Simulated assay, not measured.
Amino acid sequence: MIRQLVLELGHRPASGREDFLVAPSNEAAVALIDSWPDWPDRIVALAGPEGSGKTHLAEVWRAASGAEMIAAEKLAKADIPALVAKGALILEDLATLDPAGERALFHLINLVRAEGASLLITARDPVARLPLKLPDLVSRLRALPGAELGAPDDALLSGILVKLFDDRQLRVTPQVVSYLASRIERSVAAARKIVEELDRTSLSGKRPITVPLAAEILGRD
């Protein structure tokens, strides 16, 4: 079960992989993952831009289901029956699928349903809009239930920043969090990068993490 964390700007202990910050931009995807094994289909898809949290959610589901994980670009050379025999599978980054991989995915989808396994597919764009060539595969992907994750809003991005600072046992003021949330790219990757840079610069220069320090680092980019 994914726990909804309060998006406050106070101190919170570092959380494990099973914890997730829930907001309007990702709540449909969280609900879908949380509903396993009562999914609407044996196969579901998560779509969202880099840093939106789909990999984190896939990891949450992997921990719950014991799923095997494979990159789409490696599917063409994979042992499909052996993968399906695991009972649960995550296929990551569908856009990297090549023509041989398309045929493998078609076989995988059919076998997952035949064997009663579970398959989670992730992609940056909705799977129905990917430029795939195999007509039968395209029709199957268009029929899949799924959810999209959007870029973090202000509240979610602030919560992410707080969590990242807490994970490093760094105390910062709400003003620093607010300053960063309004200026960095709206993604987990950007939040992680700025927190890492602030931690490193603060430690090396023995300086507290303040709004001026944040402004200094953002000015370098």
Rank of each mutant, 00 (worst) to 15 (best):
M1P: 11
M1L: 11
Q4D: 09
L7F: 07
E8G: 14
L9I: 09
P13D: 09
A14R: 11
A14I: 10
S15V: 11
E18Y: 12
E18N: 15
D19M: 04
F20N: 00
L21E: 00
L21I: 11
P24E: 13
A28L: 15
A29S: 12
L32E: 11
I33R: 15
W36S: 06
D38I: 04
P40D: 04
A45T: 07
L46W: 08
L46D: 07
P49Q: 06
P49C: 01
E50P: 02
G53S: 01
K54D: 06
T55Y: 10
H56R: 03
L57E: 06
E59Q: 07
W61N: 06
R62F: 01
A64G: 10
A64L: 07
A67S: 02
A67T: 04
E68L: 01
M69A: 05
I70Q: 09
A71H: 12
L75W: 09
L75R: 13
L75N: 03
A76F: 15
K77E: 10
D79Q: 08
A82P: 03
L83M: 09
A88V: 09
A88P: 02
L89R: 06
L89T: 04
D93G: 07
L94W: 06
L97W: 15
L97D: 14
L97M: 15
L97A: 14
A100C: 02
G101H: 04
G101A: 13
L105S: 14
F106T: 10
H107Y: 15
I109E: 08
I109Y: 15
L111K: 14
A114D: 09
E115H: 08
A117F: 00
A117K: 01
S118P: 07
L119V: 06
L120Q: 14
L120V: 05
I121L: 13
T122H: 10
A123L: 10
D125R: 14
P131C: 01
K133A: 13
L134I: 14
P135A: 14
P135E: 15
D136S: 11
R140H: 08
R142F: 05
L144A: 08
G146E: 04
A147Q: 14
A151C: 01
P152W: 00
D153A: 06
D153H: 11
D154M: 13
D154S: 09
A155H: 11
A155L: 12
L157Q: 04
L157P: 05
G159I: 01
I160A: 01
I160P: 06
K163G: 03
L164H: 05
D166K: 02
T173H: 04
L180T: 00
L180Y: 00
A181K: 00
S182F: 02
I184G: 02
E185L: 01
S187C: 07
S187M: 03
V188N: 04
A190R: 04
A190E: 09
A190P: 03
A191Y: 00
R192L: 03
V195F: 10
V195G: 02
E196Q: 01
E197R: 06
L198D: 00
L198R: 00
D199W: 02
S202D: 12
S204C: 07
G205T: 05
P208A: 13
I209G: 00
T210P: 00
L213Y: 03
I217C: 05
L218V: 08
G219M: 09
R220V: 05
D221Q: 11
D221C: 12
